[in-house]
Simulated scan of single mutants.
Amino acid sequence: MKNKKPGKKLLFLVPLIILTIAIIIFIPMKEALVFQYQNTGNVLAYIPFSAEDHFKIKYTHSIHLSDVVESYVITEDDEIKQYELMYEDFAIGMPENASDGEIFEQKNGKYYIKNMNRVFPYFDLRTGKVRANHTIIYRKKEYPLSDYIEPGTWVRIKTEKVNLLQQLRGVNILEQS
């Protein structure tokens, strides 16, 4: 009878297991809308997402104290496109009309700029400390950012694939509500 040494199989299996674990932990696999701490890449929170998903950001305007809602869609190129803006008051910081190719409407005491085509690889937001109450609206449900991110924090909002480690460190907004 041949006497096989288990050590050779083990020498092959251990690196294979370590490599598999590393791939599972560090290779980005899940598409998400991420909220990163400043521009560091550290994921504070995320929403599992896919191309052509829509979301909105609602906040209270600091001067008018009325709601503003910005509507976005994720493009096929994983960029963020603003396609609509809704607000209640003209004045400081709000547009008075639509730009070229956009449509301005007034309906039920609110102003809309539609057909917007403003595309960003990412955008930065400082979450409101006092009254802004930044809220993500996703699939008709509202998620106040202050529940997941400390008010006053500068976040970078972008789409990217997140790895398992980032998922474990960040907060899945959809699972927390």
Rank of each mutant, 00 (worst) to 15 (best):
K2F: 05
N3T: 13
N3I: 15
K5H: 13
P6L: 10
G7D: 05
V14I: 15
P15E: 10
L16M: 13
I18W: 00
L19F: 09
I23Y: 14
I25D: 08
I27S: 10
M29A: 15
E31I: 00
A32W: 05
A32Q: 03
Q36M: 02
Q38V: 03
T40P: 02
G41S: 05
L44I: 14
A45R: 05
P48H: 02
E52Q: 10
E52L: 11
F55V: 01
I57K: 07
K58I: 07
Y59T: 04
S62R: 11
S62D: 09
I63N: 10
I63M: 12
S66G: 08
D67S: 06
E70Y: 06
S71Y: 12
Y72V: 04
T75Q: 08
T75W: 04
D77R: 14
K81T: 06
Y87S: 02
F90Q: 08
I92D: 07
A98R: 06
G101C: 12
E102V: 02
N108H: 14
K110W: 07
I113L: 11
I113M: 01
I113T: 04
N115R: 10
N117M: 03
F120N: 09
P121W: 02
F123E: 06
D124V: 03
V130S: 10
I136T: 01
K140D: 15
K141C: 01
K141F: 00
P144N: 04
D147G: 00
G152W: 04
G152Y: 05
T153Y: 00
W154C: 00
L165Q: 11
Q166E: 15
R169N: 15
G170W: 00
N172D: 15
N172E: 07
N172S: 06
S177E: 10
